[in-house]
Amino acid sequence: MSATAVRIPRDSRPSTPVRERGRRRPRPARERAFWPLLLPALVLYTALFVGPALYGVWVSLHRWAGPGAEMSWRGLRNYTSLLQNDAFRSSFGNTLVLAVGGGAAVFAATFLAMTVLRQAKGRAFIRSVVFLPMIISAIAVGAAVGFLLNPDGAVNELLGAVGIEGLPWLGPDLVFRCVIAGLVWSSTGFYIALMMSAVDAIPPHLYEDAHLSGATKWEQFRYITLPLTWDVFSVAAVLWVVNSLKVFEIVLAFTTGGTPGDPPLEARTVAVQQYITVSGGHTVPDLGQGAAMGVFVVLVTAVLILLIRRVTRRDRVELS
């Protein structure tokens, strides 16, 4: 099979012939069109994204209750107080557990699907089914969670029917694990859809070849599927990290949804903690502290993305 795939070094670019004669040529049309075409997008992007983002950084250096209130300078104290804030620290710890633990579960399931679903009967149907949870609203999930996971809910009744004692799923010890499980359930379909589209692009004859050579399913996955979908995996892993650091509504769905209460500490993610800070809960909103959390999460996200890109960096395998 290696005969049909070539490794392309990362830095190889098609070489362009050099035609420098030392005299000024009229600039090619492509070059002249560069700024006029780029400028509108650049202006829009700056106005709608770069500007507000920088404003967020500016806000993070102040104490501010929102438009209409006076801003007072706090400097870096919004950041240093984050480190001493137990609620923030525990929510950040939760978020990391979710990103790593949830990510491991999502991609384990995705890899399994990539080996099994490739030639399974009715695979299009199965893919649609596993994708479905992605489009169910958190409100519906929240209502279902009560019916399923309450102490006298359906799950504990099922367990009871087979002689296993039910568990306090939504209690302080287990609720965050349930949130992670819910997130894995709702988002795995998306990553399966993404990765399977890459798997579908692999020519079947590679697998036929491997099959004739006596390769097992695992070997086929290890030596064909994974290398040929590695680029997509790298992107999917980045997407997962970005999304997992923003997890919000599913926490409410599993805890205090339907009440004006704040979710319990043990189930909070950074996004939830940030929302409580910014909306003020039942006190004065602190947009400065909330913005500091935002900046902090962006930095952590950037570091994690760099790490993932570094870890998943391989020579690209391309079919010739």
Partner: peptide, 12 residues
């Protein structure tokens, strides 16, 4: 309180 009241979700 009812059993596992800390795990009971509003409004059950």
């Amino acid at each position: 309180f009812q059993k596992d009241f800390t795990a009971t979700k509003f409004p059950a």
